[in-house]
Structures are given as C-alpha cells and as structure tokens.
Nucleic acid binder design. Structure first.
Length: 838
RNA sequence: GCCGGGGUGGCGGAACGGCAGACGCGCUCGACUCAAAAUCGAGUGGGGAGACCCGUGAGGGUUCGAAUCCCUCUCCCGGCACCA
C-alpha cells in the first residue's frame, strides 16, 4: 500500500503524521480499473436494467483541440461526480463521451502545416482520450462517438435527406453572412455582437448573395417557445425566447395612389397608431421601389440604393447610425382615411423582417420619430399620454394611452383599440392578424472541407437530385488540397465534384458545401445509445428506453446555437417518426467559467493558463477534482486561486488518516451517549452531502465533509484507547461519501477498511432519521428581535413551555428592564421573541 | 436603450423570512522540532476594558423579526440591439 509513516508516534495519541502519496495511490487504482472495467458507469452498450430507474447523464462533448485544459476539468468533473452519485443512489446510469471532431481548426492546421485534417484530428483525440481518462471520470468509452467518422456523418447525410423530403431542408438564393477569415458563410446565430462578427474568429462578417442550404427551424418557432416542463436556467430560456423574438401584429396593404393594381404590405404591432401614419417606408431592396419611383426621384433613389448596398457590406448596421432615406415621389392611399401618404425608401427598414415595408408613425415610434424629425415630416399624435394637452411632442410616446384623432376609435384606450382595429381590418378584408419571428432559418452550408458533405447532386437534365440512401456515405476525398487562399478544397477537387447523376446516369456535379458542425452535435445524444448501429442513425428501442437526457451540463455559450438546434432536431426527428419525444434535454445545468489568477479569461497570450497536468503531478487527480468543486458554486466559476487547493489537499489527507484509524476500530458498538454523538455527526453529513449533490451544490457538499472530519478528529482525540464500532462506521461512511468526489482515494480507503468489493459499486448511505432527531436542541431567546439568551430545550417542548422559559430568563428580564412584554412570538424548534415595544 | 443575473470579512464563499459570515484560503498565537516543513490546537467582520453597540452596495417600506419580500437609486457581469 502507498502508506508512508513518518514520525512514528503511537497511533492513539494525537497527530500521527500518517500521509498517503496521491500519485502512488491514484496510479494503482487507475491500472486496476483499466483491467477490471474498461467502460465506465454504464458498462456496455445495452438497454436499461428493468426495474431500475434509468439515468442518462450527458456533458457536452469536446472539440479535439489536442489539449485538455482546466476548463474541461471544471465542466466534466462535477458532471462525473453527479453521475457517480446517481449510480450509488441506485440509478442505472450511462455517461457517454465522444468528440465533436469536425471543424475549422483541423483545416487551418492543414493549410498551415500541411498535415491532413483527419490525421491531425485522430492524433489529437488519441492524446485527449488519455487526458480524459486521467481525470478519473467514469465515462462509457464503449459508447464513444466521433463525428468525423464516416460511420457517423453518413447519418448526418441520411437525416439531411429525410429533412429534405419533408421540406425541412431547402436551398435558397439569399443575402447571407460570410466570414472573410474563415472563408465560409455562417448561420445567423453564429454572427455575434454589435459589430456582427464571426462567433469563431471574431472577424466582422460581410454580406453576400449566395445559393445556400437551410434547415427550416422557423417551422418550429412556436413550439420552440414552449419551455414548459423544462428545468433550464432562466437566462437560457430568456435568451432563446428573445432570439426567437415572436411578435403579434396586423399585416395589411397600402395601394399606390393612381395605380390601384399595385400594393405593398406592411406589418405592425401597433395597429392602434394607424391614424398617425405620416409616411410609408420601403427597404432599399424592396421590389416595388423600382416600379413606383417617379422619374423626378429616380436618380436620388438609385443613388441611395447603391449606397445602402455598399454600406451593408462595410459598416452594416452601426447601432446608433443616423436614419437616412429618400422619397420615391410616389404616394400611397391610407386604407382607412383615403389620405395620400408619401412613400420613402430608407435602410432602417430591413428587407429580411416582416414584409420589408412599414407604416411610419413618428409620434409613437422612436425610429420613425428620428426619421420624421430629420426630414421635417409631420408628427400627428393619435395616442395621448395621461395629461396630454396637445402640441408638438418632443419624443415618441410608445406607451399605451387614450386614442385621439382616430376616427371612430377616438376615446378608447389604445390597448382596446389594438384589438378593435385588428377585428375591423379582418372583418373588412383590409388585413389580418399576423405573427412574425426574429428567428431565421438555419443556414447550414459551409464552404469548407472538414465537415459532412451535403448529399446532393446537380444534374443538367434532372436538376437537384438527392443522393440515394444506398450510396451513403458521400465520403470526403482523402487527397484534397488545402490552399492558402482558403478556398473550399472540395470545389476544386475534380473527381469528387464530377459524378454520375443518380437518377439518369448522366454527368452531374456534387454539392461541394459541407454542413455546419452544429448539425453533428444536434443528435449525438441519440447516437451514443447505439454507436455501432449501421442500418439506422440510432436504435429506436434504445432511444425510447434511455432518452431524453436526464441531466445535460455544459457552457452557456451554446444557449442560442447548439441548444436551439438540438431542440429543433428532436422535434423534427419526432415528426419524422424516428423518436417519440420532443424535448431532448429536460434538465440543463450551466457551469461557469474558470478565470486566471488575475480574474481574466485564461489564454496563452495572457499567460494565465492553469495546466491540469502540472497540478495533478503535484497534488494528485483527486485533490484537483475536489478543489474545482470546492472553489464556489458550479454555475458561478471564478478566478483560480493557486493557494486554495491546500484546503482540499488537507481534507483528503485527513480522510485517509481517519479511515486508517477507523480500520483499527473494534466491532462492538459503544452504544452510549458519546457513541451516539459521533454517529449523529456522521449521519448529519450523509443528509447534507446528499441534499447538496441533488442540487449540484458541490462546494457545500465538500464543506460538509470537512465539518465531519473536524468533528471526528475532535471525537477521536477525546476518546483515546480502543475505538468502538461507531468509529468503523465513520470510516465506511467517509469512504462512501467521498467516492463520487475523489474516486481513487475512496477506493483506497475502502480497501484499507477491509471492505469487500469496490466502493463505487456500493449503495449510497442512508441517514438514520431517528438518530438525527435530538431530544435536546439549542434554542434562542430574543428580546425585540435581538438575541439575549441561548438555552437548551426539549425538542418537543410546547409553545407555552417555551414562552414561560423565555420570560423566566434572567437575561431577558435584564434586557426588558421592567417593560411588560407586549407580545411573545414563539417559533417552536427555533426561537422565542419577546416584544416589548409597540 | 431593452432583457436576464448579481453586490455579504483581507480573499473564495455559507445562510427554508428566525443566532449573518458555515466551510476553506490567508493571517496571528501556541504545541511538536536543534531548526524548518508537515501535522495538531486556539483565535480571526468593525468598535468597545466590558455588559453592549454597529454591520450583507445606498435610501425607503412590509414584518415581532429582512442578506432574504416590495419600491426607488447605484455599480458590476452576461445577452440582445434599427425586428416595426
């Protein structure tokens, strides 16, 4: 055994400096586990054991960057601890792991160093598997999924074709976001920040008009807004809700003055302001602009459109840009009043949202207000705020109010008028209620090599032809060339690109775009259940039995990307008849981020990176695990404090020593008051650690273990000599409670205690409630809300007894100083408050 | 600007409306040691000799009682940002 005894004092007197060597103990258990169970908690690909509650624990799989950093540890170790706890609790647990192995870094390495993305990725995964194992996590490696494996991406293609058949995958020519550094288009979700930059590399995106493949996520917009039944962090729900951006309003048409055959539609959420329209505004890209612009305005309008399109490519949408525009010269006819309304073109109206045209109501919309003021347009008030006395408004009034100058609607509250006008527009056939979403369809085309080829062929004769299932997978060619220009290698790979049309056999060309890697991660949790299944993406019986995921953990940065996409996939898979549930991850937990010592984000350039290998070489894996969980609430993250690890290091040494002492305890219980005192501490710890693990409060769970050690040490010091069986129980419980947190040391302790089997295969200890119910409890007596006395009382003392006890207390009498109690509040089991003032 | 989440000792952080600061780091003192490290023990929010008083970003409110609930303000972090 790895025991090292220095000092050599009597084991009975205090402070025998018995220490264990973490490196030795950990290496011993690592090799034992490798022999005994190469898999993890789940032990093989199988269905849940009947009669046991299944538990699918999932932590977001890593990108194989080649190095496991402390952030991976922080994400995965608590997830492992929770999964291990659930298994000891009796659940049938699976806890799979794999690699999100497609993506740009591999291709960039190919361009820079000439190493093929496949080889680069495989080598990185090899290295990371070793690092992941060294973490001491009980991953089910026999379920491993690697997304760049043709055996995996084949099913991306298969699923793409099913979505295509359902109309949920389609190709469209549209203005799209393009990252000039990554040389590829991006989904709207992957463009972030005020300067609209690439989520991966931070480069501002530009706009291009391209033919691209989309997934019709908007078909599920309403269902995606339904978060009922999801135990998700509030902020993630909020972010998704905002991202989807549902708004209800009315869509209706304006006709062009003197050309009643021409009309354009507008969408508004404020139909109550329709009497306050002072102009209509079309987006520069609106098709009607060309048609209606009068000869006198043509030159100005063309110039404006040209400028707008150039601007959209350069500094598109600076947040607080001036709202500019030009009149088209054409007039529209107000559908209710018949008034002539000037039609303008302005690029603050987006072509991609709603109808690409609006009614401008300056008095009640801040953007329209700015626009009207700039061009001297009228600002008619139609919704009066409380106390409005007429006159020109100084700012837009966007709140509800009383309708004025609005024909038959005048006098109504604007909230009522919204409904009344919507009803009337619908009844008169002028327009209809309409729901719009900010959410756009998911652009999945990427002009990159290292992703799943989109299984589509273009034939001159047959047009767009899906690759038949039996021809899948469409494999990536191994001899692609990676050009420094960053152009798509597939596009210039003749033998990949040229192919026979699956339908007519004639010459045809493959689609050379690959899929967004977020497609891969949208259904990996299904594949883990039957990773070797080769005639379907996943086994239906396994999916029915194991899914949905019971606890999903990962970073919040995926709130409106991966987590939205995978919800979409689950709904689509359900509608395709492939699975029987609609929400993939009912319970989500976001861990925080570990920062450098200087509270900044860890990065090589900042020089504040904490290397887990250095730490484990010095303190051992268990200590690093425990420290990461002790550092604070998991969801908070926080700066790394290099000295803080000393606490967990001491805790582990104390537990080792306590278990060593417990191993010498006898088998006869003392059964007296002192024995009960020790047992009470042990069982209080069981209660606390259990409750904390249930709520992912790892930091306080570890604090409870520390408290138990402190109390146990005190007890042992106070009871020299031969120890009773209560001490043996202490040792067993310590090892059991420690097992999910520090699996190596817990195994060592269990063995040292002479217990059979593996500690990790034991049942979680149950607290003895009867033992914990104490007869005498500490009790607080307050006077006017301030603590004046503390006494010990019977736990079942009545309110009357407690009241009498309080009033008798000399300290209370001193504090009340002769004032008669006005009232006495008794909280049984807690305190009494004697109130002397009114 | 809008929407979330926060502000508690020197530091990380605890605290079903009921003893604020659990637990740990650090620090101080002590034991062991020739010495140091390790280990063990005691102490550690501020003020006061003391009984006590003051303390959870600021101010107000509800309550017998507020870090916790409500209102106003302030600062910090995150998300969104012309979405009509």
């Amino acid at each position: 055994m790895g025991t090292e005894v220095s000092g050599g004092g009597s084991p009975v007197t205090s402070a025998p400096a018995v220490r264990y060597d973490p490196l030795e103990v950990e290496s011993k258990w690592r090799s034992r586990w490798a022999e005994a169970s190469p898999g993890g908690l789940g032990a093989g690909e199988r269905l849940p054991v009947p009669g046991r509650r299944k538990h699918y624990a999932l932590t977001m799989f890593p990108y194989p960057s080649g190095d496991l950093h402390i952030g991976h540890w922080f994400a995965m170790v608590p997830a492992d601890t929770h999964a291990r706890y659930r298994r000891m609790e009796g659940d049938d647990v699976i806890f799979p792991m794999g690699f999100d192995a497609f993506g740009l870094p591999a291709e960039n390495a190919a361009i820079r160093h000439g190493v093929h993305p496949y080889r680069w990725t495989i080598a990185n995964m090899e290295r990371m598997r070793g690092q992941l194992r060294s973490m001491g996590a009980a991953f089910d490696w026999d379920r491993e999924v690697v997304t760049c494996d043709p055996a995996y991406y084949r099913w991306n293609q298969w699923l793409f074709l099913r979505l295509y058949e359902k109309g949920l995958a389609y190709k469209k020519f549209a203005p799209v976001d393009f990252c000039p550094k990554c040389n590829t288009t991006l989904a709207r979700e992957q463009v972030v920040g005020v300067d609209r930059s690439c989520e991966r590399c931070d480069t501002p995106v530009i706009r291009k008009d391209l033919d691209q493949w989309f997934f019709r996520i908007t078909a599920y917009a309403d269902e995606l807004l339904d978060f009922s039944g999801l135990q998700w962090p509030e902020r993630v729900v909020t972010m998704q809700r905002n991202w989807i951006g549902r708004s209800e309003g009315v869509q209706f048409a304006f006709s062009i003055q003197d050309r009643p055959e021409l009309r354009f539609e507008v969408f508004t959420t404020r139909i109550d302001t329709v009497y306050g329209v002072s102009c209509c505004v079309l987006a520069p890209e609106h098709p009607l602009v060309e048609v209606i612009t009068t000869p006198g305005q043509r030159q100005a309008v063309e110039a404006y459109r040209a400028e707008a399109s150039r601007r959209s490519e350069i500094e598109r949408l600076a947040a607080d840009r001036e709202r500019t525009g030009v009149p088209t010269g054409a007039m529209a006819r107000h559908p209710l009043t018949g008034e002539s309304i000037p039609i303008w073109v302005a690029d603050y109206v987006l072509a991609s949202y709603g109808t690409g045209a609006i009614m401008a109501v300056p008095a009640h919309d801040e953007r329209d207000f700015d626009f009207a003021r700039r061009y001297g347009l009228p600002v008619p008030v139609v919704v009066a705020p409380a106390g409005y006395a007429g006159g020109a408004p100084t700012h837009a009034h966007t709140e509800p109010g009383t309708m004025v100058d609005s024909g038959p609607y005048s006098g109504l509250s604007s909230e009522v008028a919204i409904e009344r006008l919507a009803d009337d527009f619908e009844a008169r056939g002028l327009g209809r209620r309409q729901v719009n979403y900010r959410l756009r369809d998911w652009l999945i085309s990427r002009q990159r090599y290292w992703g799943t080829p989109i299984p589509i062929v273009y034939c001159d004769a047959c047009g767009t032809v899906p690759v038949p299932d039996e021809q899948l997978p469409v494999r990536l060619p191994e001899d692609a060339r990676f050009l420094p220009t960053g152009e798509s290698p597939l596009k210039y790979h003749e033998s990949f690109r040229n192919c026979a049309c699956p339908r007519c056999g004639g010459p045809a060309q493959r689609e050379t775009d690959t899929m967004d890697t977020f497609v891969d991660s949208s259904w990996y949790q299904y594949r883990y259940l039957s990773p070797h299944c080769d005639d379907r993406p996943f086994d239906r019986a396994a999916a029915d039995a194991w899914l949905p995921v019971d606890v999903y953990t990962g970073g919040v940065e995926h709130a409106t990307m991966h987590l939205l996409y995978t919800r979409f996939f689950s709904k689509a898979l359900c509608d395709l008849g492939l699975a029987g549930f609609r929400e993939p991850m009912p319970r989500l937990f976001n861990q925080g981020v570990i920062l450098g010592e200087n509270s900044e984000k860890m990065s090589k350039s900042r020089g504040n990176v904490v290397n887990p290998d250095d730490l484990t070489a010095r303190y051992g894996v268990d200590a690093v695990r425990v420290y990461l969980m002790f550092i604070g609430p998991w969801e908070a993250g926080g700066p790394w404090n290099p000295r803080g690890i000393e606490g967990p290091v001491r805790l582990l040494q104390r537990i080792y020593r306590l278990c060593g002492q417990a191993a010498t305890a006898g088998s006869v219980a003392a059964g007296d008051g002192e024995g009960r005192r020790l047992r009470r501490a042990v069982h209080a710890a069981i209660t606390a650690v259990t409750a904390d693990l249930e709520r992912f409060a790892f930091n306080t769970a570890i604090a409870s273990l520390m408290t138990l050690c402190n109390e146990a040490n005190g007890w042992l010091d106070a009871h020299p000599g031969a120890w009773p069986a209560e001490v043996a129980e202490l040792g067993r419980v310590l090892a059991l409670l420690l097992a999910p947190f520090a699996p190596h040391l817990a195994s060592e302790c269990w063995e040292m205690l002479g217990q059979p089997g593996s500690v990790h295969a034991q049942s979680w200890p149950q607290a003895d409630a009867e033992l914990l119910a104490q007869q005498r409890i500490p009790f607080v007596i307050q006077v006017d809300g301030r603590v004046r006395d503390r006494v010990e009382v019977d736990a079942d003392a009545t309110s009357d007894q407690l009241r009498a006890l309080a009033l008798e207390s000399p300290r209370v009498q001193a504090a009340t100083d002769g004032r008669a109690p006005v009232r006495v509040v008794v909280v049984p089991g807690r305190l009494v408050n004697v109130v002397t003032r009114a």
